[in-house]
């Protein structure tokens, strides 16, 4: 709460019209703000002086006169139309956030799954069944896939499966990203204007 808002609540407090919720907030602010404490004291002092020295008596029929004037003026009761909650901007914002979160999740989960799957695939037996592992220009595409590509894949997967360090590193990267994403998504609520410094 800033001092500007506190001043409004101080007047409400002095008038005895403050809500209990606001009173707690005001007291919290008063506890740390010397300036507002002084303001409250001076307003209370002024209020006491006015209460004891000036006596205001309403004129006879004043209430009836005011009510009549208010009722005659139809515009008094026309309220400003409230803005709808769901605007295009808001929908785009929500959809964008959801899409970004989903994309981030897919990317992170996908990378983790691929590393895990790659470490589990055992292609050694598949390689041993292939007749030729030498590359020559006459071989068909299927032959190329069976020979060299499988050799390459098996080398990579063997390296990965032998080292748990890579797997753990992938898990750690995933967890750190998850930590950041959760923290970011949670902390996106806006701070109330009253609480800004």
């Amino acid at each position: 709460m800033n001092c500007e808002t506190a001043l409004v609540l101080i007047y409400d407090l002095v008038d005895g019209e403050i809500l209990p919720k606001d009173e707690i907030l005001l007291k919290e602010h008063l506890a740390i703000c010397q300036h507002c404490q002084t303001t409250l004291k001076s307003i209370e002092k002024a209020e006491k002086i006015y209460k004891h020295e000036i006596l205001v008596t309403p004129a006879p029929d004043s209430v009836n006169t005011i009510t009549k004037q208010v009722l005659e003026n139809k515009n008094v009761f026309s309220l400003q139309s409230k803005k709808p909650y769901w605007s295009t901007k808001r929908i785009v914002y929500y959809l964008g956030t959801m899409a970004a979160s989903f994309a981030a999740f897919i990317y992170l989960a996908g990378s983790l799954i691929i590393v895990n799957l790659a470490s589990k695939i055992d292609l050694t037996s598949a390689i041993s069944n292939t007749s030729s592992s030498n590359f020559n220009l006459d071989m068909s595409f299927s032959q190329f896939i069976e020979s060299d590509l499988l050799n390459l894949l098996s080398t990579i997967t063997n390296n990965i499966s032998q080292s748990t360090l890579l797997k753990d590193l992938a898990i750690i990267l995933f967890l750190v990203s998850l930590q950041f994403t959760i923290s970011y998504l949670f902390t996106q609520n806006k701070i109330k204007q009253d609480n800004k410094l």
Binding site: S183, Y184, T187, Q188, K190, I191, N195, K196, L197
Partner: peptide
């Protein structure tokens, strides 16, 4: 960490 900048925005 995430909200400190928005504390000073009016």
């Amino acid at each position: 960490l995430f909200q400190r900048k928005s504390l000073y925005k009016t």
